[in-house]
């Protein structure tokens, strides 16, 4: 079993502009499946905070329900279709409830789920997914930024299916995973080298070695939140979110 930490904080730019925090994270553990999702609502979309919440809710639900089917499927293309369709169906319902269009709920999406000795995940848009395997940090899915810094693909984009990166593998040697939005990536990912910052290894280890019984305001969670609230947040104007799975045993 992995331990988890997930958190989002409103960026300085959003604070200045009066826009709400549009990043969302969610973790669900059920029926032997652990699922962690992260989404970053589009700045141009009027209700993107609702969109981001909807896709992390539905993403976790879907991964818990169909992890074993997805992990065993030989047809990755169909898994992408199933995943995206489910997220878009959810967004359609949310749009109807809020009286807006689906595009008003635009958000990126990243997820990872584990069960037994397998993991799988998916990623649409910017932000980064990485893991710590055999003591080495590696990027599983890098940002999809098109050419320009303020362009990316959202779950609601016409190119979302084509842009989606799907990944799965064995958990042997894997100490943990990290998901981050683009705001957090400004401190934890180098576009120049394509590598994660060394801090990611420390964060995964910190989560993995946390005491087994932890409340929502345990000391270690406070320390992790403080890191995001101050160090990571101060390096960007954007919202910052992060999701971490960590464990001690790696085999």
């Amino acid at each position: 079993m992995f331990k988890e930490f997930h958190y989002q904080v409103r960026g300085h730019g959003h604070l200045r502009d009066g826009t709400p925090v549009q990043d969302r994270t969610k973790y669900v553990s059920r029926d032997g499946v652990q699922a962690l999702c992260l989404a970053d609502g589009a700045g141009s979309a009027s209700h993107s905070e609702f969109g981001a919440q909807a896709v992390v809710d539905e993403g976790c639900r879907l991964l818990v329900e169909r992890f074993h089917e997805f992990a065993a499927s030989p047809d990755g293309g169909q898994v992408k279709v199933d995943l995206l369709s489910r997220l878009l169906d959810k967004l359609q319902r949310v749009a109807e409830r809020h009286g807006c269009e689906v595009v008003d709920l635009a958000a990126t999406f990243a997820c990872v789920a584990t069960s037994g000795d397998r993991f799988l995940g998916a990623h649409v848009g910017d932000g980064v997914v990485g893991y710590l395997k055999d003591g080495n940090l590696a990027v599983i899915s890098a940002p999809d930024n098109s050419e320009f810094a303020n362009q990316t693909t959202f779950v609601t984009s016409s190119g979302a299916l084509k842009s989606m990166r799907l990944f799965r593998g064995s958990l042997a040697g894997v100490a943990g995973f990290v998901l981050m939005s683009d705001g957090t990536a400004e401190s934890l990912f180098s576009p120049r080298t394509g590598e994660l910052a060394a801090a990611c290894s420390k964060l995964i280890t910190a989560v993995g070695t946390a005491p087994a019984q932890q409340g929502k305001n345990s000391e270690y969670r406070k320390r992790l939140r403080k890191l995001v609230d101050i160090r990571i947040r101060n390096a960007t104007k954007d919202d910052c979110s992060i999701g971490i799975l960590g464990r001690l045993e790696t085999s």
Binding site: A197, A199, K202, L227, R231, I232
Partner: peptide
């Protein structure tokens, strides 16, 4: 949790 400046990226 000892994260220094060298552990972060200054993009």
């Amino acid at each position: 949790l000892n994260i220094g400046a060298d552990d972060l990226v200054d993009n």
